[in-house]
Structure formats: C-alpha cells, structure tokens
Design a protein around this nucleic acid. Structure first.
Length: 278
DNA sequence: AACTATACCTGCAAGC
DNA sequence: TGCTTGCAGGTATAGT
C-alpha cells in the first residue's frame, strides 16, 4: 500500500524520467476512476502539455503541466503509476493511459480502484477533493518541536493520531506500526500523554523508518511497484507489520494483532507494553 | 462534537 | 476441486 516512502520513490522516478516529456494523446481515461473529472476536461488540459516536475505532499502526487494545470494523483491501496514503452503488454486494470514522446506511455493501474485523480486549473479542482493538510514528514518544518506540538494538541490514541492525514500527511498503517515498535511505545497510549523524551523517541523513529524504507525503495506486500514496475525491498525489514504470531526481533515475544480504529495494529506486547490494552 | 461504522473495490487465502 | 466467505486498507461519508 503506497505510503510516503512508496509515493516518494515514484515521485523521484517520475522527476528523473517524466520531466520534459510532452503528452501526445490521452488514450484511456476510465470515468470510474476519474469521478467528477470529465474525460474531455482531462484530455483538453493534458494533450500537448509538458510534464514540468514531480512533487508530492503526503501520499498525494502532484504533476504540474506546462500552461499551469496540475494533475493530482492518489494511488489509494493498489494504484501503480508506470512509465513504460508504448508496446509494453496491456495489463488488466489499466484505467488511464497517456501516450508520450519517445515511445513512452504513462499508465495508471489500480486493481482495487481506490485511487483518485484530480485536476487543478486556475485554482479550481475538478475531481476528488483530497484532505492532506497535515505537515509532510520530509518537510524541514517537521522538526521535533513541531511533532511534540502535534502530539500535545491531539486527543486520542497514538495509532490513530499518527494515521490522521490532517495532522501528519503520509504515514499509513505499515509505517505507523513500525515506528511505534522502534520507539517502544504502545499504539494505545494517549498522544497527549507523551513526555518530551518519549515524543523525541517517536519523532526519531518516524524519521528513521521513513528514511530506511526510502533507501529500500518502499515496501511491496502485494501491489506496490515503482514507476519502472520494480518491487520495493523494505518488506524484508518489517519488525511487526504482517507478522502476527512471529517473534519480535528485539525481545522474542510473539507479535500481536488487534483491530484498532477499524484496522489491524501489529505490535509487541512486551516491548510496547506500557499504556493500556495488552 | 467526536467517535464508529460503512461504502468503495478486487484479489487472494482460508474454510468447507 | 470448486465454491463461498472473509479480509486487506485510505479515505469520504453516513450514522450514533
């Protein structure tokens, strides 16, 4: 599932390989994926335009085009944004396809169809409205003081506060579970109950897990691929996520899975014991 | 107001 | 074997 490290990996790929390329033709644009973004609007905004750069905020990719329009793409659960030769086999679930210069095509595949596209033109957004107002962890503004202030001001359990995209944009279930394990904090601890040193530990854990995952080009559990179709490597380093019943790499206790706020939380009850609910 | 449940989707895996 | 069932999860929205 694409979270910050996966989306950032794709962004870097696209920044290197897509920038400067002209869109010749929009050859596919499934209305199911585009929602309130009419296919005709996408076509007229994109055809003949050039990809100027690749940006990202949280899990949202932003692709500014010449002329001022910006494409916004959220990969959802299983979205892939692939830059491949025009002749590459037409895999199932390819919902959007741009034919580009140099024999390349930008293709959007998404089996589960949770991905969303939007187009921002003249300050108006057509398509899905994304709520990614939180600070991006790779932004220099995201420092320890900023993190501590967010935790202090948040009601609720650590797990759900860290997942809240309106506070911090980019963390998903995998990296939140991993960061809490690194910091040896219970997912059930109240965010505002953290001491300064605990918040500092968690801040470092969030940064280190994101940096390490990024260096492995993300985590591939099932669907994630980079813009070249390659898998990530960080799944081999996961300590708790998806490892229910296996032993904690730090203390050897059995990793536990519990449903919290509607989704699976993986944690080590021994290392991360303090703070309710075992 | 703030928390919870559900809808959206498909592929996969487990169970019968 | 082949079917059914349940589960995975990011986010918006409906419900409590």
């Amino acid at each position: 599932m694409p979270e910050l490290p996966e989306v950032e990996t794709i962004r870097r790929d696209l920044a290197a390989r897509l920038t400067g390329l002209k869109i010749l033709e929009v050859t596919r644009s499934a209305s199911k994926m585009l929602r309130k973004l009419p296919a005709a609007a996408l076509r007229s905004a994109c055809e003949g335009r050039i990809f100027e750069r690749a940006a990202r905020h949280g899990k949202l990719l932003q692709l500014p085009l010449s002329g001022g329009a910006v494409l916004e793409i959220h990969l959802g659960m299983s979205g892939q944004l692939l830059l491949e030769p025009w002749e590459a086999p037409d895999e199932p679930h390819t919902h959007v396809e741009f034919r580009l210069e140099r024999g390349l095509a930008l293709r959007f595949r998404d089996p589960r169809r949770f991905g969303r596209w939007a187009l921002v033109e003249n300050g108006k957004r057509k398509g899905q409205v994304f709520e990614h107002a939180g600070v991006d962890p790779l932004d220099p503004a995201f420092d320890e003081a900023c993190f501590f202030a967010i935790m202090r001001g948040a009601r609720g359990e650590l797990k759900r506060v860290l997942l809240d995209q309106s506070r911090i944009a980019g963390l998903g279930n995998i990296y939140v579970c991993e960061a809490l394990h690194i910091a040896e904090l219970s997912p059930y601890r109240g965010a505002s109950s953290l001491s300064g040193s605990e918040a500092g530990r968690l801040f470092e854990a969030v940064n280190s897990v994101l940096t390490l995952a990024l260096s492995h080009r993300g985590t591939t559990l099932l669907n994630y691929r980079d813009a070249s179709g390659e898998q990530g490597g960080f799944q081999l380093k996961l300590a708790v996520y998806g490892r229910e019943g296996e032993s904690c790499p730090r203390c050897g206790s059995k990793v536990k899975r519990q449903v919290q706020a509607g989704r699976s939380t993986f944690y080590c009850p021994k290392c991360q014991g303090r703070g309710r609910k075992m």
